[in-house]
Design a binder for these strands. Structure first.
Length: 603
DNA sequence: GCGATCAGGT
DNA sequence: CACACCTGATCGC
């Protein structure tokens, strides 16, 4: 559940991804993507009533999000109040207070977020500066550098605040295998199974949410088949997806779901009840896409885990990992630092801005896409080269000495490890699967777009992080909905909407370093602030990697990782006790250098 | 009957 | 671990 209260400090007249409470009084609404936890209040009767009497209030989102939203009849009343915007097309939006007539002009740009179809980030430029609201996102390192409108000339724009998806902003989630790595592994597993006979069927046990579509399109392409799903309605106007899904149950790959009935046995039947026409029993395996992550010291591990006789779990994530999340503000802060100090050349080494090559840019053909290419759904996610690389890597179709109906032995599942080969395993929850580490390690690395050769400043030296918590951001009185006066709003809002945790804790990062507290605060404000420089607290970067060393660069190389993130690995982490914390606080207050190893012992 | 909230499940 | 839901129970209107 997103904990973001819906408003940004700089532009409190717009509401994003929250539509209840104070947000009912916003002058404009923004929906980053079509997931329910970002749509709170969106079908509420109060908002519905407001729309009836308003001529100016609109909901801004991408075309795809609009389509997905309106495919649900519960949101049909929005139809005449939605303004769909093209990606990467700055749009002037005037926020009007209908009572006073007061106007406020903003330039809003939708940037691809790679989270699910239609998902975007909002770049807002106006009198209060440029801010970026990411919504949920999955961007790999380097993707931000390919987003043209984050840049101005050869530099990154001076971004005042970043409102960040912090779902996995915790070092425990240091690494999540890349999209292509996971896709390749799933392809291999599916290949092994469906090639045995026409009765061998795969059920993709996907959740009821948008975001798996690229899995469907890629598997559909690979196996020249369509994937059985429950409904096609929402994809009516999306030929790329529509061409890869079907309601015809006679296919070897299913992603159908059944609302009820969980005594369903994967090995015997599918949620749709499909069976072979000649009465031959289907041989079914289930693959459950779910997030797997690896600690900063994880050497390498599997992206597919066998969980039962005929069931598997496959790595799949809608969200960026810790290192990926961290990369975004780091990338932006590098350039902010440059703007401040004017002492480093951004174009020479550290961050090279590359024109969008694989990132599809302008798209007048939005509604007449090439049916074979669903990449536009995940602009920025670099899918096009992914697929090509995956194809080329698939040089070793596994031979299958076992009987056709035997579940796949794990050793025959093609696995890719090149994406995270430098890590050591930290989440060893899988004693059932032992040595699969025989895979060749020659995989490419997909995040080499940022080098460390330019000694960019550490982002935490230029930014502070403030965790927005639900209780602190949703106070009914925290928002002035009676007055258009910005000063009133800003004055009362600042301390409440954007609470300063340091008032209560020695460091805003302590809860994070303990591996706790983030579940209540998935959205995070990162600000560029001069005043944070020299403030000892700001060196306690969220995540608690308080190494004390400021000589290393803002983004650690893989080899630096262990020193930079020397925190307990997942199985050993535990909640710090009061004594642990008070001791830590005391040492911090005394200005002692807190060695993280010590911290991890006490924490 | 509806919405909001919570618990519990996948 | 976590997600993005779904269902059902309960409460208040």
């Amino acid at each position: 559940m997103s904990s973001f209260a819906g408003r940004m400090k700089e532009y409190p007249n717009m509401s994003l991804d929250r539509f209840d409470r104070e947000n009912l009084h916003a002058r404009a609404y923004f929906l980053s993507h079509c997931h329910k936890d970002h749509m709170k209040g969106l079908k509420g009767p109060q908002l519905k009533r407001k729309l009836k009497f308003s001529l100016t209030v609109k909901l801004y989102c991408s075309f795809v999000t609009k389509e997905l939203l309106l495919s649900n009849p519960k949101y049909a009343f929005w139809k005449d109040h939605i303004v769909a915007l093209e990606l990467e097309s700055p749009t002037l939006i005037t926020l009007i207070d209908e009572a006073s007539g007061e106007r406020e002009e903003l330039v809003v740009t939708l940037l691809p977020a790679g989270h699910c179809p239609g998902s975007v980030m909002f770049l807002v430029e106006g009198a209060q500066g440029t801010v970026l609201y990411t919504g949920d996102f999955r961007l790999a390192k380097g993707d931000a550098s390919r987003i043209e409108l984050l840049h101005s000339g050869s530099r990154v724009k001076d971004i005042k605040s970043v409102y960040l998806d912090s779902t996995f902003y915790d070092p425990r989630f240091y690494k999540i295998p890349s999209r292509e790595t996971c896709l390749h592994a799933i392809r291999g597993l599916v290949q092994d199974w469906v090639s045995r006979s026409v009765y061998h069927t795969v059920w993709l046990n996907c959740k009821a949410a948008y975001g798996y579509e690229y899995l469907f399109t890629n598997l559909g392409d690979e196996f020249h088949t369509q994937i059985h799903v429950k409904s096609l309605d929402m994809f009516k106007k999306m030929p790329e997806i529509l061409s890869h899904v079907t309601t015809d149950r006679a296919t070897q790959i299913h992603a159908c779901r059944h609302p009820k009935d969980e005594e369903f046995v994967p090995a015997s039947r599918l949620p749709c009840g499909s069976s072979a026409s000649d009465g031959t029993p289907l041989s079914i395996i289930s693959i459950k896409p779910s997030t797997m992550w690896f600690g900063e010291r994880t050497q390498r591990t599997k992206v597919i885990v066998r969980t039962g006789a005929s069931s598997y779990r496959a790595c799949f994530s809608f969200h960026s990992s810790y290192s990926e999340v961290r990369h975004l503000p780091a990338y932006l802060s590098v350039c902010l630092g440059l703007l401040k100090s004017m002492c480093r050349d951004v174009s020479s080494s550290a961050v090279i801005y590359r024109p969008l090559g694989t990132l599809k840019r302008t798209r007048p053909e939005q509604h007449t896409h090439d049916v074979d290419c669903a990449d536009w759904l995940f602009e920025g996610a670099d899918l096009a080269p992914v697929r090509k690389r995956v194809m080329m890597q698939e040089a070793t179709p596994t031979t299958l000495p076992n009987r056709p109906d035997e579940p796949l032995p794990l050793t025959h599942i093609p696995l890719i490890t090149g994406d995270y080969m430098d890590c050591t395993e930290s989440n060893d929850d899988d004693e059932e699967e032992r040595d699969l580490e025989e895979e060749e390690r020659g995989g490419e690395r997909d995040e080499g777009s940022v080098s460390n050769s330019g000694t960019p400043p550490r982002w935490e030296e230029f930014f502070t992080t403030e965790i927005l918590t639900e209780s602190q951001t949703s106070q009914p009185h925290s928002c002035s909905h009676t007055s258009p006066s910005h000063s009133t709003l800003t004055g009362s809002q600042t301390p409440e909407l954007f609470v300063d945790d340091s008032a209560k804790l020695p460091s805003p990062s302590i809860p994070l370093s303990a591996g706790r507290g983030l579940s209540q605060a998935e959205s995070m404000l990162i600000q560029s602030e001069d005043r944070c420089q020299g403030d000892a607290l700001t060196n306690l970067d969220a995540g608690g990697e308080e190494s004390g060393s400021h000589t290393h660069q803002s983004e650690p190389t893989e080899s630096q990782v262990s020193s930079d993130f020397d925190i307990p690995s997942t199985p050993d982490s535990h909640t710090p006790g009061p004594d642990d914390l008070s001791d830590l606080y005391r040492r911090l207050a005394a200005g002692e250098e807190v060695i993280t190893r010590t911290g991890s012992q006490s924490l």
